[in-house]
């Protein structure tokens, strides 16, 4: 038999847990401030380090979110043999952005345009070429895989970045000094036959309902939000006068979203 006072005590305990939880649910539903990271923004200037490096895993690098600079190019494209590891050099203002993309995208993603008659499919192919990636794990750009475009050919998906065999290119590099100008031009024409005159530009993908479907590329919705936000696309356009407090920073984007009225 339970003693009466013990039972009352037990019920008091049940009631207090009950009311605490109840109060908390009411608090988060109606009263909790919507901008949860406000204290980070409101810090004094001498706390600058805390503001910039408020995440431990981002410490140590000026561009403290995207780590593609630290990694080896994945599944290196044959194009890089002639065009170099940093193939984009002409446009000084955006070349760093473009070269950073080469670490996790096949060149053909931007340089071979998908046409309405023939839409390409884009997939993540593992860095060691062992197959398709089914889940994105790791930090942005460090998924150990490369985005590769595929084309439907007799109902089979065919990699576009492997249409011309690597051997053709390698042989050309070996033999190019022995070739006549006409022969060299012909081979170069063949190698570059699929390349579009006008590549896909930044803001064609980095916008809502853009050229690439980031959802189908396994990105989580919050990451898709970052990738399609106006910050990313806009910075390229407004490069000369630029200001990007929230660029590439999911927390800052979330904060921006929280600062707007939330649906109940």
């Amino acid at each position: 038999m339970i003693k009466k006072w013990l039972l009352h005590l037990l019920m008091l305990f049940v009631l207090s847990i009950h009311l605490t939880f109840l109060g908390w649910v009411v608090w988060i539903t109606y009263f909790r401030p919507i901008v949860r990271t406000a204290q980070v923004v409101n810090k004094q200037e001498d706390d600058f380090e805390d503001i910039v490096y408020y995440k431990d895993d981002m410490r140590g690098h000026f561009h403290n979110t995207d780590e593609s600079i630290n990694i080896e190019s994945q599944n290196k494209s044959i194009c890089l043999k002639c065009h170099g590891t940093y193939p984009h050099s002409k446009a000084k203002d955006v070349r760093a952005f473009l070269n950073a993309h080469a670490f996790f995208m096949a060149c053909e993603v931007c340089h071979v345009r998908s046409k309405d008659g023939q839409r390409f499919t884009y997939k993540w192919i593992k860095a060691d070429n062992t197959g398709e990636l089914k889940l994105l794990n790791g930090k942005p750009g460090r998924y150990g895989a490369l985005i590769v475009p595929f084309m439907k050919d007799n109902n089979k998906l065919k990699r576009i970045d492997r249409i011309i065999s690597d051997k053709v290119t390698e042989n050309y590099l070996k033999l190019r000094d022995t070739l006549t100008a006409d022969q060299a031009a012909e081979i170069k024409f063949k190698i570059h036959k699929k390349v579009s005159a006008k590549p896909v530009f930044c803001d064609e993908c980095h916008r809502k309902d853009g050229y690439l479907n980031f959802n189908k590329l396994l990105y989580r919705p919050d990451r898709v939000n970052v990738l399609t936000s106006t910050e990313v696309a806009g910075v390229i356009k407004k490069y000369k006068k630029f200001y990007f407090p929230t660029m590439f920073d999911p927390d800052a984007v979330m904060m921006d979203r929280w600062s707007k009225p939330r649906l109940p």
């Binding site: 019920m11 009631l15 009950h18 109840l22």
Partner: peptide, 13 residues
Amino acid sequence: LAILVWHLLTVFF
């Protein structure tokens, strides 16, 4: 809230 406020309080208290 319905379960916590209504049902459980009724059942217990």
